[in-house]
């Protein structure tokens, strides 16, 4: 053994130890707060419901069957029912609209912030994040107060004389959509801002130099180069909004059921934990499919040759 190797070997061992030690808390947190709960939900989804909440430890796929079929009260036969699929679809649709709206608002906003001077940039970022110092529940209720029939927004509109009766701004899909956009907008603005920060604006000059109009340069150069930021932002908005609970509950007044509320009621009022767990697994699967699809797409676009 050379002198050098002798010197290095104890250092290596301690480095490996340090590596494991540093990783341990993260592994612990993920196991306790992510893998374990998901495993519990997975197991519960295959059990029978107890009468007043909780589960009975008998294997059953009733939870999953319930999503697609209705069991007849009299003879117990299964009949197809699209009710829950409609709720799932509505959630996906709302989340998609919310994502598109956030994109449309965030692209110009992020571009604006990224092109400010180094001195004013932090101020704009600060202004974006300030509302998030207040709890989401309080902000959502505040939004409801603004949108109500006798809220300040409707009063202002009626004062202009455009309508005599208040506009239906609250307790509907519009209010839910607005609430979702409002809740998740910064998750779009911030990744897009950092993408614009890294964007090489000389690429735009090169595009203009090669006879591209502003519009074409935006769609052929800016958007494709910013894809990673756009995808990150879209996922960060889409995933929480598909399962969102607060906005549909408060702003929708619980009238239009979303998947998040449906799951909530199974654990609270309806006392059907396995069904709620099965719905959760379905929601998780839908989310994962979207994630994998996005990752595949961006991986394919980025391969070089």
């Amino acid at each position: 053994m050379t002198a050098q190797a002798e010197l290095r070997s104890p250092f290596r061992v301690s480095k490996r130890l340090a590596f494991t030690g540093l990783l341990l808390p993260a592994v612990g947190v993920i196991t306790i707060f992510m893998i374990a709960p998901v495993a519990i939900v997975f197991v519960y989804s295959f059990l029978e419901p107890a009468r007043y909440g909780g589960v009975v430890w008998n294997f059953s796929v009733e939870g999953y069957l319930q999503i697609l079929f209705e069991r007849d009260f009299v003879d117990g036969s299964l009949q197809f029912s699209a009710d829950y699929l409609v709720i799932l679809w509505r959630s996906v649709f709302q989340a998609a609209i919310c994502t598109v709206l956030c994109l449309m608002i965030s692209v110009p906003t992020a571009y604006f912030i990224a092109t400010r001077s180094e001195r004013t940039k932090p101020i704009w970022i600060f202004l974006i994040t300030v509302p998030y110092w207040v709890n989401l529940l309080i902000r959502t209720i505040a939004l409801l107060f603004i949108l109500r029939d006798d809220g300040p927004l409707n009063k202002a509109i009626m004062m202009t004389g455009l309508t005599t009766s208040p506009l239906p701004l609250s307790y509907n899909n519009f209010a839910i959509g607005l609430g979702l956009v409002y809740s998740f907008l910064p998750f779009m603005v911030l990744p897009l801002y950092s993408a614009f920060e890294r964007f090489d604006f000389r690429l735009l000059e090169a595009a203009y130099d090669l006879y591209a109009s502003r519009r074409v340069a935006f769609f052929k150069i800016v958007l494709p180069v910013m894809r990673p930021g756009l995808i990150a932002g879209s996922l960060l908005v889409f995933i929480p909004s598909i399962g969102s609970y607060l906005a549909p509950d408060i702003l929708g007044g619980g009238k239009t059921l979303m998947i998040g509320n449906l799951i909530g009621t199974q654990f609270q009022g309806a006392h059907n934990w396995p069904f709620g767990a099965a719905l959760s697994m379905i929601l998780l699967t839908v989310t994962l499919i979207v994630l994998i699809w996005m990752a595949r797409r961006s991986a394919r676009k980025n391969t070089g040759y």
């Binding site: 090489d200 000389r202 690429l203 595009a207």
Partner: peptide, 12 residues
């Protein structure tokens, strides 16, 4: 047309 300093080739 211009040849830019750091080339500014379209990376995508």
């Amino acid at each position: 047309n211009t040849v830019f300093q750091q080339y500014a080739l379209f990376p995508h």
